[in-house]
Design a binder for these strands. Structure first.
Lengths: 141, 141
DNA sequence: ATGGGGCTTCCATCAACTGGAAGGTCAAGA
DNA sequence: TCTTGACCTTCCAGTTGATGGAAGCCCCAT
């Protein structure tokens, strides 16, 4: 299978597939012409990666999960630990976003949104306690 | 005021403040020794930026908001439009994350997490519909 | 042989910083 | 006066996870 076929089958763009090879998540064979020659194993790995990414796992998580998947002697505890950590991260993120949303919703509700310059949104940004401490925690997200 | 003072006062790291100057959000004066010399105006802008960023506005949103803030003849409608768009983006993101969370929570709940290799998490990643279409929408977030 | 797709590599770009190196400046203490 | 240490400066690189685009093969059909 060429990269285009695999792409269609697993739903990942060719660029992404090449990138995954680049960072060592897959290692497809090569044809004599230099084209990547994917087998079913590669395909399944890519599909696995696509699903894991869709669940928000980081690439490094994916790398570990893939290794565990391949390891017949794995302990499900290891898999579960990764998923649980990730779940926690997601829940934190949701909470942060909900806080933002609540604040923003209030501001948007209270803003007339007309021709006049008076604006509670700007007023809040102008002064409402210390600016720091990124409530979003999305600096590194 | 030197950068360290401003940093303490507005809660943004010096690196971030320098970066904001770099991308033209602020333009502090310089002392004869080359040190940045911040006035209260700069300070307030930085505090404004810190709060806007904490609410999750992008840098470009911040740039616009800052300009509107400075413009006494602004229409609050313009501010409100930016905030409303941002609110929508956040709500979409929350919904995406909640979907991930629900799926993950189920998987974590159903995984024994012991020494045995059987694992519903891996089983799901192995095969559960097409991989594509990143439900998280966090490719460009 | 030529045209159009598909494939290859490599380099740049996105957001929003952050880390670190190499070096100048300043105030306080011995 | 010298030194020490905390500041400050600039510049370059790296982070995450791709994506866009250029330049150039390859292959098949007409």
């Amino acid at each position: 299978m060429n990269i285009g076929d695999v792409s269609k089958r697993c739903g990942l763009p060719p660029k992404t597939i090449r990138y995954y090879e680049d960072i060592g998540l897959i290692t497809p064979q090569r044809d004599t012409n230099g084209y990547r020659a994917f087998d079913l194993g590669d395909m399944h790995k890519l599909a696995f990666l696509g699903r894991a990414r869709a669940l928000g796992f980081t690439i490094e998580d994916c790398r570990t999960l893939l290794a565990l998947w391949e390891d017949q002697d794995r302990a499900s505890a290891d898999v579960r630990a990764i998923a649980k950590d990730h779940l926690t991260r997601i829940e934190t993120k949701i909470a942060d976003l909900q806080e933002m949303r609540d604040t923003l919703a209030t501001l948007v509700r209270d803003c007339a949104g007309d021709q006049r310059p008076d604006c509670p949104i700007l007023k809040t940004l102008e002064s409402s306690g210390p600016a720091q401490a990124d409530a979003a925690g999305n600096r590194g997200a």
